[in-house]
């Protein structure tokens, strides 16, 4: 079980308190209806699957309840950094 540092609670907490939320920094288009089918497909379905650094969303679902972003290495599973939602990608 991973330990995840919650940027809001400012402490490392056990993984079971968290929910994974998929790839981070994919903003919902402001005007989806203006998007082509291909662009909408890109937003909806196309995700990175890197070997190594991955930006991802987590929610401290059974803690402070907040979504935040993280950089995690998909090989070692190690978290490099976590930071509040809304901040620029690290």
């Amino acid at each position: 079980m991973l330990l995840i540092h919650c940027p809001y609670c400012a402490e490392a907490r056990p993984e079971v308190e968290f929910a994974y939320g998929g790839q981070a920094h994919i903003a919902r288009p402001l005007d989806p209806s203006a998007l082509s089918d291909a662009d909408w497909e890109q937003y909806l379905y196309i995700r990175n699957n890197p070997r190594g650094r991955h930006h991802e969303r987590w929610r401290h679902a059974h803690g402070c309840g907040r979504f935040f972003n993280a950089v995690r290495d998909t090989v070692t599973d190690k978290f490099e950094v976590t930071y509040p939602a809304g901040e620029a990608a690290r």
Binding site: A19, G21, A27, R28, R57, R59, A61, G65, R66, F67, A85, G86
Partner: peptide, 13 residues
């Protein structure tokens, strides 16, 4: 509730 929180916190904060 989780889905609504997601939109509220991350898209329409």
């Amino acid at each position: 509730l989780g889905m609504m929180e997601d939109y509220l916190q991350t898209e329409w904060s």
